[in-house]
Design a protein around this nucleic acid. Structure first.
Lengths: 111, 111
DNA sequence: CGGATAGTTCGATCGTTGTCGAACCTTCCA
DNA sequence: TGGAAGGTTCGACAACGATCGAACTATCCG
């Protein structure tokens, strides 16, 4: 099985999480996971803004999110199932994830 | 007078703000501004973690924060006074700034 | 077995960013 | 008038990051 390093809750650092959120593609992934948890990487690829992205690039973004402590994953057959580490993020940085998700929605509504 | 471009509230974008927060030095500046508003750039330079920074580098960080819409500034004599755009950020991304500031405190307390 | 599906890894490219020192610009004050 | 103080701008440099295609791995299914 491939390695999937993921920081412990206590190791999640703010600047790292901010960096993970500092990219439109990753924000879109996070927002999608908020509305439909437990997605496969492949399903996430058919999002607006990510359709034209190479799968190696998508894989890169998934790694950034996971290493920052934003997401977790498990393998199911050939698929990799991704979800948000909601409780971990909420316990470490209360309100942060909700505020970011609300921010994504707020921006989407302006279009 | 030197130019100080600053985005309108409606132009503040989430990824940009996240990027502005994605640096320990800038997070330290933001946290300092939260506790002691209306600082001069020079005063902010005597923060832990910023003491050894060249003033050109500090100036760079100030610009990133301002262009992201996080801070505003005015000149007072030879000094430049900086403050957080609290209301603007709160109206555009409710709860975000507070969550980030709480996060900085939470990390500081772990030391 | 062999092909299809789902992801990862690698190397390359190219733009961005953090950092510095030096030079410069503004404003104040002696 | 001439420093001094506070910031900005510039050029350089190294590190990082987003992106791609190609090659690779792992799993399932016919």
């Amino acid at each position: 099985m491939r390695a999937m390093p993921m920081p412990d809750v206590s190791e999640i650092d703010l600047a790292g999480v901010m960096h993970a959120f500092a990219d439109p593609s990753r924000l879109a992934i996070v927002a999608a996971l908020a509305h439909m948890p437990e997605q496969s990487c492949d399903d996430l690829g058919s999002l607006a803004g990510l359709m034209s992205m190479a799968k190696s690039t998508r894989s890169h973004h998934m790694r950034v999110l996971r290493e920052a402590g934003v997401t977790a994953a498990r393998y199911e057959g050939t698929r990799k199932i991704i979800w948000l580490r909601r409780e971990d993020l909420d316990s470490r940085f209360p309100g942060l994830l909700d505020a970011v998700l609300a921010g994504v929605d707020a921006e989407a509504e302006l279009v």
